[in-house]
Amino acid sequence: MDYDPVKDRLGAFFWKTPTRTKAFFRTLDAVFLRSWYVRRALREIIGASDRQRPFRVLDAGTGFGQYAYWLVKTFPHVEVLAVDVKQDYLDRARAFLDTTPYASRVTFEQRDLTEPMAEEDAFDLCLSVDVMEHIEDDRAVFRNFHRVLASGGHVIVNTPSDQGGSGVTEEGDESWIGEHVRDGYNAGELREKLETAGLEHVRTEYGYGPWGTVGWRLLVKWPIAALNTTWAAAPLLAPYYALAGPAGLALNRADLARDNASGTGLTVVSRKP
């Protein structure tokens, strides 16, 4: 299934007003379990920083811009450079941020993450959420992260794993998302690529374990698959989420509280020495 057309059509509806956009971001934060893991990691790293100077974040592959918005809304000392290859996404995210009190702390730029970045950028954190599975030359991206990170800076990579990420569970299966260039990362492979780029490993977490996988089906897979089949299903989403939403959110909470031995989602935190 090609996921981008569904995302683009949903975005076209929710970008019409700032109120709709905020509601859209809250929905994404709730239904996508990866956001729960990423926000916890961000709180742990940024919350531990007690310095007075701004904390600079590279939002690498910002997409709709929901993480850039969440960062500056949550942490008053954070500044974000949000980059993406899609200029239309950046334009819409910029227009939305300009309606908020946080506009001056977010810069949007069109960039290819595989192209060299200037070392003087000196970020404290590079964030990559649901991006690396779309990029063939991932090693170039990790080298760029190392180049632009300040000493002691962190990288957070969240991506599907090879334990069934992208819906691939057996040899010969095709990714549920047609835009993925890889079905998912092996944890050891991802660590090796980050370490080869000069980044030391801090921790690895599996998300979407037994509970989270069921929650993902309820909250994401089945609704998106229905929309991909026919947009006549759109009016049914509100009553569907009214029934399935509480159970799905409870499953997300249970997954976050669990130390998963494996899962279809992977969050790796690394650090520049």
Rank of each mutant, 00 (worst) to 15 (best):
E174T: 13
L199V: 11
G178W: 02
L219V: 06
E200Q: 15
K193I: 08
G188A: 15
S166F: 00
K193E: 14
A226L: 08
R217A: 09
W216F: 11
T204P: 11
R182S: 11
A197F: 05
G215C: 08
Y185G: 05
E192F: 14
K193H: 14
P210E: 08
Y208N: 10
R217T: 08
E195P: 12
G215F: 03
E189N: 13
V220K: 00
K221S: 05
Y208E: 13
Y185Q: 09
G207W: 09
G167K: 00
E170P: 01
S161C: 05
Y185R: 09
L194S: 09
P210F: 04
A225V: 01
W176Y: 12
W222D: 02
T213H: 10
P223I: 01
R217Y: 11
H201T: 14
H201R: 14
V181R: 06
E170N: 08
Y208R: 08
A187F: 10
V168I: 10
N186W: 12
E195L: 14
E192K: 15
L227P: 00
H180Y: 02
L219R: 06
G212M: 06
W222S: 03
G167T: 00
I224Y: 07
V220R: 00
L227T: 00
S166K: 00
S166V: 00
V214A: 13
